[in-house]
Nucleic acid binder design. Structure first.
Lengths: 213, 213
DNA sequence: CGTGTTTGGATAGTGGCACTTTCCAAGAAG
DNA sequence: CTTCTTGGAAAGTGCCACTATCCAAACACG
């Protein structure tokens, strides 16, 4: 299929597709002649993922390029490809490491990981952007006066652990490594709003039950 | 306290605070003289919330103004203030309503809400931005070929229902209405990355357990 | 009292980013 | 042969969250 058809089937304007090609988000089509190129179903699929990342995930173009680079890096094993892709996803700005509150929260988080039995996560520790995000959000919550005890955090953590189990069960249903990594990325981008939408719907449901309209 | 001190204690540059004042995110300080104004602890706290919404939640300035407008609207009852504030939060762009897949997914979601026993949520239905977000993300997942059956969705929904219960239990610990609404907003902005960070940590933990490094 | 500094407010400018527009020459279509 | 389409390069656009520059009033100090 040519550019015009790729645009029509995906619903993405031609100019925008050219931009993605230029920026290296979408691989070049197969050259048919000096001024003509052919695109495959794989391009269509990849374009869908790019749009989802940018429009739903609000991920910057440069970051999308980086993430997709890891997705396509066949020199790595699945686990590393997956980890590299997810670690490249954007994280909120971090709290300064020399802040006393940050130090205190970091220690609390370490203790908490131990209590949860998440020993692998604890070892990876500060290397993981996810870990630092956790510290940062707790620091901010504390600053705003909305922090909760470790017990409340643990309750949330146990629930999210079950969510993670469901996620991994789904990953297991895919044979192909590239598909696994793509699902993991799509899951980070699209399951997040989905989970949060479910949470808010449940909040709406139960708050009307508790307090009425 | 004057502007300079507000800036120092909050860590937000003076120019930026002026910008927030101009944009109506932060209420004006009390005028001391023609060229001098005094700011309170309330300003400091509100400024923290604004920063969290913009920097961590990546919420547009115009939206922050709208959300805070609802938070401060004392003419509404708590439930409505809370709902209005949360409904003003940004949602991903929606899928076109006339699309056949969208229609199909909408029906499936309605059935699903019935199965969950979320009758209130079902009645509010299309009015709720959250509901439409749910439809949109499922449509996108389906387009990408990553959709799952209603059963899987229900498993996630049950877990998020428990999360929502924890959220509401926390809300109950606050007496003051304004604080309740502020917590709800902070919860939407900051608990979301926190929950997602917990989910990813759990994923990392269990994927290394399942597949090793 | 005078002089230099600080303050809040108005206005204009900046930089980043995700596109769009415009242009062009080579090919395809009729 | 003429007309249209195509892919590619380069410059332009619009939005947005700040940021820099001025200014005159007012405070601080000797």
């Amino acid at each position: 299929m040519r550019l015009a058809e790729l645009s029509e089937r995906s619903g993405v304007p031609v100019g925008t597709i050219k931009y993605y090609l230029r920026e290296g988000l979408l691989p070049q089509g197969e050259r048919i002649s000096a001024t003509q190129a052919a695109y495959s179903e794989a391009h269509l699929r990849r374009l869908g993922l790019i749009r989802a990342m940018i429009q739903i995930g609000r991920i910057p173009v440069a970051t999308v390029r980086e993430v997709l680079g890891h997705v396509d890096d066949e020199s790595l094993g699945t686990t590393f490809r997956l980890g590299a892709a997810l670690w490249a996803m954007p994280q909120p700005p971090e709290a300064p490491a020399d802040d006393p509150l940050t130090v205190q929260v970091t220690e609390a988080v370490d203790r908490f990981l131990g209590d949860m039995g998440w020993h692998n996560a604890r070892e990876i520790g500060a290397l993981s952007p996810t870990y630092r995000t956790l510290v940062t959000t707790i620091v901010t919550l504390t600053r705003l006066g909305f922090s909760r005890g470790a017990e409340t955090l643990a309750q949330y953590a146990h629930l999210m652990e079950e969510v993670a189990q469901l996620d991994l069960d789904q990953l297991d249903t895919y044979e192909d490594d590239s598909e696994k990594v793509e699902l993991a990325v799509a899951s980070a981008v699209l399951y997040e709003p989905l989970l949060l939408a479910l949470r808010r719907l449940a909040q709406e449901e139960h708050s009307t039950r508790r307090y009425g309209l």
